[in-house]
Amino acid sequence: MAKNTSNTPSDRDPKKAKKPNSFKQMLQVFQMTRRADPNVVWLMALVFLVVVGLGVLIGALLENWITGLIVGILLGVLGAILILSRRAERAAFSQIEGQPGAAGAALNTLRRGWIVEEQPVAINPRTQDLVFRAVGRPGVVLVSEGPSGRVRPLVDSERKRLARILPNVPITVIESGREDGQTPLNKVAKRMQKLKPELTKVEVQAINKRLASLGPRLPIPKGIDPTRIRPDRRAMRGR
């Protein structure tokens, strides 16, 4: 019997077959955002119409309203996408806010240049307060999760431990949350990106190796799995 050697398109090029559909992704982002923020539809429509209107007006003043309309539509679509991107980020964080490990998920949205410890470096098993750690050119950053007054001793203990191990390395503490003095989840990564660089890339790698050599991570209390809580990065980028 002759051997059938015919292949489907997916067999010939599996990567091409698995390539995500950009329009489908955008639709999923829009649906997710609309469920969390129904006003996003009206806001996107308003931005689109205002930009198109301005484009037509400017085009009419230049006696070329057709070109103004075309440019206005393109810029209007871009403006609507930017609105969707911002609202999608807010919606993504609203879905994980209040869950154990949410601060660690916020750290996972950092851009390149940071080394993030996915599991918490300090835990209060009774209250489930957590402290996460990231290393970058600004130094070591500790991000706490829990009420400010309750989580502070946990943060102070970890900061003192790091100060003994890394005496000349800057250590910054960011308390995530909605209380006074705390940083909302959606602004944690932005605040860290604004920190002043103090170390070289080589020093960052050396510090990370030093911390990794200290031993195994702390055991995770039952009911907490912070590595499973992650915001949708595509949604946060609006694509």
Score class of each variant (00 low, 15 high):
residue 57 L to Q: 05
residue 32 M to C: 06
residue 210 R to Q: 13
residue 3 K to P: 00
residue 159 R to N: 06
residue 126 R to G: 00
residue 17 A to C: 12
residue 201 K to N: 13
residue 225 D to M: 05
residue 95 Q to K: 15
residue 142 L to K: 02
residue 23 F to P: 00
residue 233 R to E: 07
residue 118 E to A: 12
residue 215 G to C: 10
residue 63 E to H: 13
residue 29 V to F: 05
residue 212 A to D: 15
residue 180 D to N: 09
residue 3 K to E: 14
residue 159 R to H: 06
residue 59 G to T: 04
residue 217 R to Q: 14
residue 78 L to Q: 06
residue 1 M to N: 04
residue 215 G to Y: 01
residue 171 I to R: 02
residue 67 T to W: 14
residue 3 K to F: 09
residue 122 A to Y: 05
residue 102 A to V: 11
residue 61 L to N: 07
residue 71 V to R: 08
residue 85 S to F: 00
residue 81 I to D: 12
residue 16 K to A: 15
residue 155 V to K: 02
residue 160 K to Y: 11
residue 33 T to Y: 01
residue 113 G to V: 04
residue 147 P to R: 14
residue 229 I to F: 07
residue 219 P to S: 07
residue 155 V to M: 14
residue 133 R to P: 01
residue 66 I to Y: 11
residue 191 R to N: 13
residue 151 V to L: 07
residue 157 S to I: 03
residue 184 P to Y: 12
residue 232 D to M: 05
residue 67 T to K: 06
residue 27 L to Y: 07
residue 231 P to H: 05
residue 234 R to V: 00
residue 202 V to Q: 15
residue 154 L to C: 03
residue 1 M to A: 13
residue 220 I to Y: 02
residue 16 K to I: 01
residue 145 E to V: 03
residue 125 P to K: 12
residue 50 V to S: 09
residue 121 V to A: 07
residue 229 I to L: 15
residue 165 I to C: 01
residue 118 E to I: 11
residue 66 I to G: 11
residue 181 G to E: 10
residue 50 V to L: 15
residue 46 L to M: 13
residue 163 A to F: 02
residue 201 K to Q: 10
residue 58 I to P: 00
residue 39 N to G: 14
residue 58 I to G: 01
residue 22 S to D: 11
residue 217 R to L: 12
residue 73 I to L: 14
residue 88 A to H: 03
residue 10 S to N: 12
residue 116 V to C: 03
residue 228 R to E: 14
residue 60 A to I: 00
residue 58 I to H: 01
residue 86 R to S: 13
residue 141 V to Q: 04
residue 13 D to G: 02
residue 211 L to K: 03
residue 96 I to W: 07
residue 103 A to Y: 08
residue 87 R to E: 08
residue 179 E to T: 01
residue 179 E to R: 01
residue 52 V to T: 09
residue 121 V to M: 08
residue 137 R to S: 08
residue 181 G to H: 04
residue 49 L to A: 15
residue 86 R to G: 11
residue 95 Q to S: 11
residue 53 G to I: 12
residue 71 V to C: 09
residue 87 R to L: 05
residue 30 F to L: 15
residue 57 L to K: 06
residue 128 Q to E: 12
residue 92 A to M: 07
residue 49 L to I: 15
residue 20 P to M: 08
residue 59 G to E: 05
residue 44 M to C: 13
residue 233 R to Q: 12
residue 81 I to C: 09
residue 98 G to V: 08
residue 207 I to C: 01
residue 163 A to G: 04
residue 114 W to E: 03
residue 238 G to F: 11
residue 200 T to A: 04
residue 203 E to S: 08
residue 174 I to L: 15
residue 34 R to E: 09
residue 148 S to N: 10
residue 182 Q to N: 04
